[in-house]
Nucleic acid binder design. Structure first.
Ligand code: FES
Ligand code: FES
Lengths: 156, 156
DNA sequence: ATATTAAAAGACAATTAAGTCTTAAATAGG
DNA sequence: CCTATTTAAGACTTAATTGTCTTTTAATAT
């Protein structure tokens, strides 16, 4: 699996927040996100704490509280979310698990993997939340098994 | 992590076998492989059973027994080993974990991921054990933390 | 102030992946 | 046939990930 479940949920939640951002909503309760995306509320809470620790989101307690993106969706790249949750291993480590990739003595797959993982990195690095959200809305794409992004427009 | 530990170990063991093949050794005891690569013997045994079940290797019990590649290293592609151990999920599933990738309603990352995962697939699909082994020997690359492929030449 | 809402923190349980150990079956050589 | 060697099979343990639950803390509204 390329990404951990936690990372996938973090991305889906961030996408949800990006869609809300377009509707001028700021602080959204985690409960609303977890219900909408059909994720465990408590598990999502822990994941979002990682994103707030990484300053990608901020949170506010109490009534009218919730979470919010700290920057505009256009300025948040997917790779930041991946790095905050799964770390940078995918973009730096040896595909055969040997310590110290890029070491004097590389592994026999190093050259090909260095090229391929750059393609992966570019994919995450060149995709903003805004791009995903607008594309998702334009093409009515899925954000969870049952929810399309268009569904979000009137749900608030 | 792109590949499971089991898959990584399976690849490393297959590479070892490819190197042995060039030295005309056929059945190599698993113990020799696990000792050389510094892997758990029993764990490796289970992994290799998956490779024999996939007909990538064959095994022989008893004294002078061991495992052997069923085909020439040139004819075994890395993707076969990955598929035998980790399955095809990496090449077929949604990067956001949604069921049914390529579904009428895709996810907002589908297009980019479909392209990127094809690059990953091509990497594994276009690399043979022979290529890795000869390159590894030629450039004295690593097969484990401590073992370079050149070391194998005289170790038999 | 008090009650209510919502995130933070952290203990706990379930599941999966990773790794170990024991016993059984097959083969070679004496 | 008997013993040593080596894979096969499967029970078992440990560790990591995933998921749940309870308590605490902060903010709001009455
Ligand atoms: S050393 Fe293996 S991928 Fe770099
Ligand atoms: S539907 Fe998500 S990658 Fe294809």
């Amino acid at each position: 699996m390329l990404l951990s479940k936690a990372c996938i949920y973090g991305i889906r939640a961030s996408l949800y927040m990006a869609a809300m951002h377009e509707q001028k909503r700021q602080f959204v309760p985690i409960r609303e996100v977890s219900d909408s995306l059909d994720l465990s509320f408590h598990f999502l809470t822990k994941i979002l704490q990682q994103l707030t620790a990484a300053k990608l989101m901020e949170s506010y307690k109490g009534p009218k509280g919730g979470i919010a993106l700290t920057r505009k969706p256009k300025e948040i790249m997917l790779i930041e979310i991946v790095a905050a949750i799964d770390g940078n291993g995918l973009f730096t480590e040896c595909v055969l698990g040997l310590p110290g990739c890029g070491h004097k003595k590389a592994c026999p797959l190093h050259d090909k993997w260095a090229y391929t993982r750059e393609a992966i990195q570019i994919m995450f690095n060149s995709t903003s939340l805004e791009e995903m959200a607008s594309k998702g809305k334009r093409m009515n794409l899925r954000l969870s098994d049952t929810l399309s992004m268009e569904d979000l427009i009137t749900s608030s």
